[in-house]
């Protein structure tokens, strides 16, 4: 079960890191033009960049569970990190940085709901991993067994 949950966490992390590249306003060819004519990225683009920072620890935690990490404490720690990463992934487009002002722009139509969905999935999968890890049996060390 923890392998399945680990895979879900890795997929959520990939979505968090990759989806903004294709769904922010910059991908739609929209830039912010300053008064001196210079083109700069809109804030949804920076949200997308920041999501990579949330995706990395989530992916590491997910990979640990996916590759069959057996230490209960480490798995639980990975789950806690996963919950925190999922929460940050949700907070970035909603409160911390935000998205563009217009409700009809690509970032609000696509990027934001995708990031929120992936964040929710990450939190649910990580929470489940925490409880699954709690039930895991600790492997008996050969020395102790002897």
């Amino acid at each position: 079960m923890s392998k399945v949950l680990g895979a879900v966490m890795v997929v959520a992390a990939l979505v968090l890191a990759i989806a903004p590249v294709f769904t922010d306003c910059q991908s739609d060819g929209k830039w912010l033009t300053t008064a001196n004519g210079k083109q700069v990225s809109m804030k949804c683009h920076w949200t997308g960049i920041a999501e990579i920072a949330a995706a990395i620890p989530l992916a590491i935690g997910g990979l640990y569970a996916l590759l069959g990490g057996r230490r209960k404490e480490t798995t639980r720690l990975a789950a806690i990190v996963g919950v925190a990463s999922g929460a940050v992934a949700i907070l970035l487009p909603t409160f911390l940085i935000g998205t563009c002002g217009s409700a009809t722009m690509t970032c609000n139509l696509l990027m934001r709901p995708i990031l929120l969905s992936a964040g929710i999935v990450a939190i649910v999968a990580s929470t489940a991993l925490f409880f699954v890890a709690r039930d895991q049996e600790m492997p008996v060390a050969p020395a102790a067994a002897a």
Partner: peptide
């Protein structure tokens, strides 16, 4: 996408 308008 103009800096003079907060919302496009």
């Amino acid at each position: 996408g103009a800096s003079c308008c907060s919302v496009s």
